[in-house]
Design a protein around this nucleic acid. Structure first.
Length: 558
RNA sequence: UGUCCUGUGGUGUAAUUGGCAACACAUCAGAUUUUGGUUCUGAAAUUCAAGGUUCGAGUCCUUGCAGGACAACCA
């Protein structure tokens, strides 16, 4: 009688279960609160999986709330992309909210804080304010505007709202403690004047709440129980609680903020600001350029939602900061794609092979397995003829020791077809091999020799007359350094070979009608996906990831 | 010379809360293979340090050390 091993809880799940057991909360309600100022990336997927996953696990709810309190950087394009990406990942929110839904309430809360003497209008310039704030290691000093009368504050704040003052001339600050060792408690700004057009509220507001003012209150308004965020907000927690407790002194079950370590990947940049820079300066074709770490880019590249969810599951949740190896992400896609994608044959760098003893004008259909991992995927027919293409890298004139592929006088198997032996190499005037002359053994049809002789190598191939052509885009890491963000300028680390476009690749004809987004394994090469710009006239494939390549390792060592 | 957070194989994450340090990725070796894929087997490799409590410490205590966060009218 084996006990089924129960999966251990991460620290957030432990908190939640304790909170549920001791009655601090009767249920679970989380939220995912992106700012619509950029596209979601792989790091966000961890937070999405966590928040939506927790809600699902504990029978609770999860809201999607756009933290849209800074109209100068936000827009609807981002809003729409975020919704699409979350749904694509396989999650659906219970309520769709916006911080801007609460602007009226937030204004009232601010007025109440003023009335209670907990907030004041300050006229310090940013420089003066910084000076008054002090530094983390020594206390700050109070603003000269700190002790205005409630009436004056009320009047000024209303006039701020009415647009009577220029941008930056005044702020509303919470009155907390200028000597606190926590900088965020040194009278933080909770409202600023910003006369910009908001994509939802238009020109209604001249003042906008700051993150801290909007975030915790939004959580409380929505009845969020557990407000899960990344580590950098840990120092905000006292302010989060101060604000909530000040606004709702009587309220029970105010949300609990819990922080976890954000996901970092080596060779990758995760900052939205830097990703925007890559887009704006044209280093990539857009937010969904398949080299980007954004969810839309991973989708375009051929990643599956399952693989990303599995990846996030494997990564785990903790407070320790870390840098993950991208190989774990790659493993996760390969693992899933191996199970679900149909196999096809495609020759990326073609080398023509003429099978001299195969009758001209003859062709035949051979049977190929669509997916050895899934019998229900069935079989298909592939055409064979006298002239075929094989991969250039599958032939070597002077092969090294462990090379199992084709060479002068060597015999290999053509997958699902015949054994062939290389008899002659044809070169051009530059001495480059342009064609191989081979003979085939008619007895080996299907790939087995009746006399039982074995060959070490099996090559993929495509019949020359039947092949369809395509562009194939090979991607490599966007950055050469493990930690590009650590460079003086991260763009110095850009990999000049991050994309390689192969033209006139030879593909099995069945690929001609493949629709955008369709994924295949090209045998012996990797997983590929039809790009959104592809058409029947102009086929374009993106390489999602290569297959594990043991030979490449051996070859690299030699 | 502040406050807070974090230290477990190369990389992540666990350890029934004081009882033989495990799982995954990566690495290496072997088997299987009509994909040098998949699959299977095996190997190497881990508790920041020093004291203390205890029969017993990754876990508790003390003192160090290391890394990170915080000084936007960004989120």
């Amino acid at each position: 009688m084996e006990e089924t091993p129960t999966k251990s809880l991460n620290f957030i799940e432990q908190f939640i279960e304790e909170d549920l057991e001791n009655g601090s909360y009767s249920h679970l309600h989380t939220r995912f609160p992106p700012e619509p100022n950029g596209y979601l990336h792989i790091g966000h997927s961890k937070s999405i999986c966590l928040n939506f996953g927790l809600a699902k696990k504990y029978g609770g709810k999860c809201n999607l709330r756009f933290d849209d309190t800074n109209p100068s950087k936000e827009n609807v394009e981002y809003v729409e992309s975020i919704k699409e990406d979350i749904r694509w990942l396989g999650f659906e929110w219970d309520n769709l909210q916006h911080a801007s839904d609460y602007f009226d309430q937030l204004y009232e809360f601010a007025v109440n804080l003023i009335k209670e003497g907990k907030a004041y209008v300050c006229e310090l310039t940013p420089e003066e304010m910084a000076e008054h704030r002090g530094v983390p290691t020594s206390p700050g000093k109070e603003s000269p505007f700190r002790n205005r009368s409630v009436e004056e504050n009320l009047d000024l704040f209303e006039r701020m709202k009415n647009g009577e003052f220029p941008n930056g001339s005044k702020t509303l600050r919470a009155k907390i403690d200028m000597t606190s060792p926590n900088m965020h408690l040194r009278d933080p700004v909770i409202y600023r004047i910003q006369k910009s057009h908001h994509y939802r509220t238009g020109d209604k507001w001249c003042i906008y709440p700051m993150y801290d003012m909007a975030h915790g209150t939004g959580d409380s308004i929505e009845g969020i129980t557990h407000s899960i965020c990344t580590l950098e907000f840990e120092v905000h927690r006292p302010l989060y609680e101060w604000l909530n407790n000040s606004i709702w002194p009587e309220k029970k079950g105010l949300p609990r903020q819990i922080e976890f370590a954000r996901l970092n990947l080596n060779y990758t940049i995760m900052s939205k600001r830097k990703l925007l820079e890559l887009v704006q300066e044209g280093h990539v074709s857009g937010w969904d350029d398949p080299r980007m770490p954004t969810i839309s880019a991973l989708r375009r590249r051929g990643y599956t939602p399952e693989s990303i969810r599995n990846f996030c599951e494997r990564v785990g949740v903790a407070k320790r900061e870390h840098v993950l190896d991208v190989s774990l992400l790659e493993f996760s896609v390969r693992e899933h794609l191996n199970k679900v994608s149909e196999r096809r044959m495609a020759v990326l760098n073609p080398l023509k092979v003429v099978i001299t003893n195969y009758p001209e004008n003859q062709e035949e259909e051979l049977e190929a397995i669509n997916n050895p991992e899934d019998e229900s995927a069935g079989k298909r027919k592939i055409s064979f003829s006298r002239e075929i293409f094989i991969e250039r890298s599958d032939f070597m004139e002077d092969p090294p020791k462990k090379f199992f592929r084709l060479g002068p006088g060597r015999e290999v198997r053509l997958r699902y077809a015949y054994y062939i032996t290389c008899e002659e190499t044809i070169k051009n005037e530059n001495g480059e091999i342009i064609e191989l002359r081979c003979t085939y053994d008619p007895e080996t049809k299907g790939g087995q020799a009746p006399d039982g002789r074995k060959v070490k190598g099996t090559l993929h191939w495509v019949s020359a007359s039947h092949a369809v052509e395509a562009d194939v885009r090979l991607y490599d890491r966007l950055f050469r350094d493990e930690n590009p963000a650590g460079k003086e300028d991260f763009k110095d680390s850009l990999n000049p070979d991050s994309i390689k476009i192969l033209q006139r690749c030879k593909l099995e004809p069945s690929l001609k009608s493949a629709k955008a987004g369709a994924r295949f394994q090209f045998e012996r090469l990797g997983y590929f996906c039809v790009d959104k710009d592809s058409s029947e006239e102009k086929l374009i494939f993106n390489r999602t990831v290569t297959l594990r390549d043991t030979w490449a390792k051996i070859a690299a060592k030699q």
